[in-house]
Design a protein around this nucleic acid. Structure first.
Lengths: 191, 191
DNA sequence: CTTAAGTCGAACATGCATGTTCAGGTTAGG
DNA sequence: CCTAACCTGAACATGCATGTTCGACTTAAG
């Protein structure tokens, strides 16, 4: 953050931000938006877009990274490690859901365009947070220890995303999701 | 099944089958396979493909219908409705996760290309099977009734998919999958 | 004020997929 | 064996998105 390799003009910086903003919106609203559409929405020439993001894939990754970083920050602030692992987990679940819910369409796109593997790689620190919490819960004797830790994380992760998908398709009300998730996950996880 | 509108030559019938076979494989392995690739894989001219399936969309629907029908048959045969809902459900779990794993990419594709609504319409009877079993479990007082039925179904399917994915990436042993799934799902579903 | 960084539209170059048409070659089936 | 159904490659017509290049215009920043 301190040393920027090539000194960028404030101008360029502004445009990059505008592009990322626009791309986030467009990717979310209309996943197959073209680069042209994104440039237009950002109030920027198509050439300028390519100057900053050499390909659609790079742009998507940038949007995703920025979004996940922000989300991680929100989660860390809203769901501290206080109390038992169970309590902390419940808080984590609710804030995670809230954040994921806002960006569920973006994740859907990323899953399809980048593949599940790379998507999950970019989640790494958020996922680690969950894993740490589950491990603490096991040490406290609150969470089960008879299944692989990886699987427990997968369970949480995949049900979160499943809930997002159900909301997308109108099968689940967004405001019910957190309760439903908690009611499903706690019995599945606790010892 | 009895009356074929236009009498088709055995020739054509064979090609149609070959196309559906090839399309299933290609759609599963590489979802964005072109019509040309599918024709090539089926050992058929591109024109012939279009003669039988006027558009990519029609072809995808045909493949989907056929696959779902076969999968439904397999599941129904291997997991009859005998015993308590709990027992039947356990059988269902053990027989169906492997089948679903093989076709999950196809479903993913269909969801994106056909939309979630039409996809759900087309595998209505398979979903109904699970749903019926869960409903029976509720009537028998074995499964919880405090969550939307749709969500219970989603929970089952998404964890099935997640297990398949974990097996694919080597995080979970294939022979453990059924046990792990059962150990996770039963606490989440039972009352 | 100067200049280098940045931006712009327009045009161009590909590449790729979807469909369609045609004229001739095969094959099934009665 | 005859004919209609069927298959075929090749060529064509579009359309669309991705990138790239160019020359000219703006603007930030020292």
């Amino acid at each position: 953050m301190a040393t920027t390799e090539t000194r960028r003009r404030a101008d360029a910086e502004r445009n990059i931000a505008a592009i990322l903003d626009a791309a986030l919106v467009l990717f979310t609203e209309e996943p197959q938006s073209s680069m042209a559409a994104i440039a237009r929405a950002a109030g920027v020439g198509r050439v300028t877009l390519y100057a900053h993001f050499p390909s659609r894939e790079v742009l998507l990754e940038a949007v995703l990274d920025r979004t996940i970083a922000e989300a991680g920050e929100v989660i860390r602030k809203a769901a501290p490690e206080e109390g038992t692992a169970m309590e902390a987990f419940q808080r984590l679940l609710r804030t995670s859901w809230h954040v994921l819910n806002q960006h569920r369409k973006l994740f859907e796109l990323a899953q399809r365009e980048l593949g599940p593997v790379r998507l999950r790689q970019r989640h790494r620190d958020v996922v680690d947070h969950v894993e740490g919490l589950l491990a603490r819960g096991q040490r406290e004797g609150l969470f089960r220890s008879d299944l692989p830790m990886n699987w427990l994380v997968t369970t949480v992760y995949s049900l979160l995303h499943a809930a997002a998908e159900d909301v997308n398709t109108g099968q689940l009300q967004a405001e019910d999701a957190a309760d439903v998730l908690e009611a499903t996950l706690l019995p599945a996880l606790k010892s």
